[in-house]
Nucleic acid binder design. Structure first.
Lengths: 69, 69
DNA sequence: TTGTGACTTGCAGTCCGTT
DNA sequence: GAACGGACTGCAAGTCACA
């Protein structure tokens, strides 16, 4: 029902795996809690654009890349 | 401090003006509160990606376009 | 290493009206 | 038409223990 949530979840996990990072590694770099990253990757929440910006910067991509289908 | 918020604010206002729509018109089409659109355009809040999706769809653009610098 | 349930806090988001 | 106000509800934000 909430497509955007799932798109972010998939892109987040895909980009993180491409880096070969664990959730722990990303949580450290982005300065957000590891379990919260897990919750985003399982579509539990609809992240804010501020959170999107933090994660994108840690991953070295544009925030918009996290929204691409 | 929160750059993403400002980027969304500017893109939202720019795209809305390109359509020649008032905040009222956009709020009706996107089914979100008019005063909230005002608050987003003045960088008062950091919208969720779900909200971003609703606004992008109403404006006929990709959600990522609202995050472009 | 990751997912989940539980919990608290703060802000997103709505609804009213006024400037 | 747009900004701004208070008051309210619900969910994102943030953290923890445990499976």
């Amino acid at each position: 029902m909430d497509g955007m949530r799932d798109i972010v979840a998939k892109n987040l996990r895909r980009l993180r795996h491409e880096k070969g990072w664990s959730q722990e590694e990303l949580s450290f770099r982005a300065k957000v809690d590891r379990s919260y990253i897990s919750q985003l990757e399982t579509s539990a929440y609809s992240a804010s654009v501020t959170m999107l910006g933090k994660l994108a910067r840690a991953l070295g991509v544009d925030a918009g890349d996290l929204l691409k289908r």
